[in-house]
Write a protein that binds this DNA or RNA. Structure first.
Ligand SMILES: [Mn+2]
Ligand SMILES: [Mn+2]
Ligand SMILES: [Zn+2]
Ligand SMILES: [Zn+2]
Lengths: 139, 139
DNA sequence: ACAACTTTTGCAACAAAGTTGCATTCTTGA
DNA sequence: TCAAGAATGCAACTTTGTTGCAAAAGTTGT
């Protein structure tokens, strides 16, 4: 296995293509969550918009990345931890932080989502918690 | 004050127009959160798409409605509780539930968002918590 | 290293969602 | 009732997301 992106792709049973490697490298290099647009403009090589949509969907399905909800209708994505990749089911249990200053969205892996008790009759599947505010580097 | 929607508009210092009343009535009548599209198709009268965008933005600014993040890039909106309207700053502290069966998004006003401690250096402003699963009426 | 097979990609053509400027219409308060 | 200001509808446009299909690239076994 030559490098990390190749390794992740092979472990997920995906064929290794320039586009997938490139996009994955971008995720690995970047410290924050990426939106479709970030990827389109941030990739070393240029890839078709459609390819990026399809790649992101594939990565989601395989548990390589997870999506982060937001109120600006821009979905951002970040690398999952190992367990998601291996099980094909998302197990990210951390909160996300969106900085109102620098607009970066971060995974706060060290802050886990607290347990909430739903009213009777509700069945919980996934939880998402997004905090907005000012990040460490913007203070 | 003739009815509730008029009252809310006046209290927020907004002029009372057919569109605003209609949209607000829809929110009041509906038990769940509404997306732009729901409003466009659900209003008694037909209003221009642009008017609906602008109205939603105005309602957000005035603290009449709040937006609910989701990972499907469709933002949904729901009525705020009184405190938002009066202060112009959102104070909704409840979690949101999105049913994977009926696709309805609900405000669970009775379930408040638990407190989380952020790492040093982070300043919190707003918290959003969205739970997905199966709702009471879909079991 | 090659061929056969499978998968991925790019392109084109759409559809849906969101934005902006401007003229017209509606609200409001004097 | 009327003037001033605010909201609306329309047109034109940008951005975002989807689908089908042919060409290109990746994979597997020899
Ligand atoms: Mn994350
Ligand atoms: Mn709510
Ligand atoms: Zn920041
Ligand atoms: Zn349901």
């Amino acid at each position: 296995m030559i490098n990390k992106s190749t390794e992740i792709l092979k472990n997920s049973g995906l064929s290794v293509t320039a586009g997938r490697k490139s996009i994955l490298d971008l995720f690995i290099a970047s410290g924050n969550a990426l939106a479709h647009q970030d990827i389109e403009s941030g990739c070393s090589e240029q890839f078709d918009r459609v390819t990026i949509y399809r790649t992101l969907q594939t990565f989601l399905d395989k548990g390589i990345i997870h999506s982060i909800p937001a109120t600006d209708s821009i979905i951002r994505y970040a690398l999952c931890n190992e367990t998601c990749t291996t099980t094909g089911h998302h197990h990210d249990n951390h909160i996300h932080f969106r900085c109102e200053q620098c607009s970066k969205t971060l995974c706060l892996d060290e802050v886990s989502i607290p347990i909430v008790k739903l009213p009777d009759g509700y069945m919980m599947h996934e939880i998402n918690m997004v905090v907005t505010g000012i990040c460490k580097s913007c203070r």
